[in-house]
Amino acid sequence: MKRILFAIMFFVSLLAFAQNETLFEQGNKLYNDGNYEQAISKYEEILSNGKHSAELYFNLGNAHYKLDHIAPSIFYYEKALQLKPDDKEINGNIAFARNMTIDEVDTIPEVGFTKFVNNISKALAFESWAYLSIGLVILFVVLFLIYYFADGTIQKRMAFVASLIMVIFTGLALSFAFHNYDLAQQDQPAIVFAQESQVKSEPNLRSTESFKLHEGTKVQVLDTVNNWKKIKLADGKTGWISSDDIKVL
């Protein structure tokens, strides 16, 4: 019975894969023929089937860019970069799309110890830091056993020092792992989709306007209250924007 169910599931997955490949090829042909709206429909149909890939998001971004859809093009380029952050073609195209935006937001660079810690934390994924921590713990146990059963004084001393070093490295690896996790949790980017949106000082319509944002601008979501999102710009400015005016990545 299990084999039959597995065979059915495998067959269904093959059919879904084939269907998505067909839609992707149809979308590419429509794009090459200049039928960008129809190409977008084909690509979105793939998304509705639960298929996600950097190539699919990239093509969606390209199609929207051809139609001068600023916010959607940047949104899908950003989605593609989440899957392939070092892709030169995606980075090149999103740079062109960002040139169409109105808002000029300066980025505050990280400096000093914060930059140092963040760079090390981002060097590995959270899972990689976790596996490294487990490996260091195993090394510590091995070295401690060597220390415990060793007969010679020099062997004991070397094993003891090495085990202490493993403890320190394990603590550092765990610290970087949790810092990496915190950075990932805090990273909630969104793209402004409204042509123009008022950013308020408080999460209500009666509050004063802090500044305006326009479509395509990237923000970080800090908090949510009812139908309002607290956002932060790359230059450090914060405010509240209507949830309907942005799309979270």
Score class of each variant (00 low, 15 high):
Met1Gln: 13
Arg3Ser: 14
Leu5Phe: 08
Phe6Tyr: 12
Ile8Tyr: 04
Met9Gln: 15
Phe11Gln: 08
Ser13Glu: 11
Leu15Gly: 03
Gln19Arg: 13
Glu21Arg: 12
Phe24Trp: 07
Phe24Tyr: 11
Phe24Asp: 03
Glu25Leu: 10
Asn28Ile: 03
Asp33Tyr: 07
Asp33Pro: 07
Asn35Pro: 06
Asn35His: 11
Asn35Asp: 08
Tyr36Lys: 02
Glu37Thr: 04
Ala39Cys: 06
Ala39Ile: 00
Ile40Val: 04
Tyr43Cys: 03
Ile46Glu: 00
Leu47Lys: 07
Lys51Arg: 13
His52Glu: 13
His52Ser: 15
His52Pro: 12
Leu56Met: 04
Leu60Ile: 01
His64Pro: 05
Tyr65Met: 08
Leu67Thr: 09
Asp68Glu: 10
Asp68Val: 15
Ala71Asn: 02
Ala71Val: 00
Ser73Ile: 02
Ser73His: 02
Ser73Trp: 00
Ile74Met: 04
Tyr76Arg: 03
Tyr76Gly: 03
Leu83Glu: 05
Asp86Asn: 08
Asp87Tyr: 06
Lys88Val: 06
Glu89Asn: 11
Glu89Thr: 07
Glu89Ile: 09
Ala95Ile: 09
Phe96Arg: 10
Ala97Glu: 03
Arg98Asn: 13
Asn99Trp: 05
Asn99Arg: 12
Thr101His: 00
Asp103Val: 15
Ile108Asp: 00
Glu110Val: 10
Glu110Trp: 10
Glu110Leu: 12
Thr114Phe: 12
Thr114Gly: 09
Lys115Val: 01
Lys115Phe: 03
Val117Ala: 01
Asn119Tyr: 07
Lys122Leu: 12
Ala130Cys: 12
Ala130Val: 14
Ile134Met: 08
Ile134Phe: 14
Gly135His: 04
Gly135Leu: 10
Leu139Glu: 11
Phe140Leu: 10
Phe140Trp: 11
Phe144Ile: 13
Ile146Asn: 04
Ala150Thr: 04
Gly152Met: 13
Gly152Ser: 13
Ile154Val: 12
Lys156Thr: 00
Met158Pro: 06
Val161Ala: 05
Ala162Ser: 06
Val167Gln: 07
Val167Gly: 07
Ile168Pro: 10
Phe169Asp: 09
Gly171Lys: 07
Phe176Lys: 01
Ala177Met: 10
Asn180Val: 01
Asn180Ala: 13
Asp182Pro: 09
Ala184Gly: 14
Gln188Lys: 15
Phe193Val: 14
Phe193Asp: 13
Ala194Cys: 03
Ala194Trp: 11
Gln195Cys: 12
Val199Pro: 08
Glu202Pro: 03
Pro203Phe: 00
Arg206Ala: 15
Ser207Arg: 08
Thr208Phe: 14
His214Tyr: 11
Glu215Tyr: 04
Glu215Lys: 07
Gly216Ile: 03
Lys218Asn: 03
Val221Phe: 05
Lys229Met: 08
Ile231Leu: 05
Lys232Gln: 15
Leu233His: 01
Trp240Met: 08
Ser242Gly: 15
Ser242Ala: 15
Asp245Gln: 10
Asp245Pro: 08
Ile246Asn: 04
Leu249Lys: 05
Leu249Glu: 00
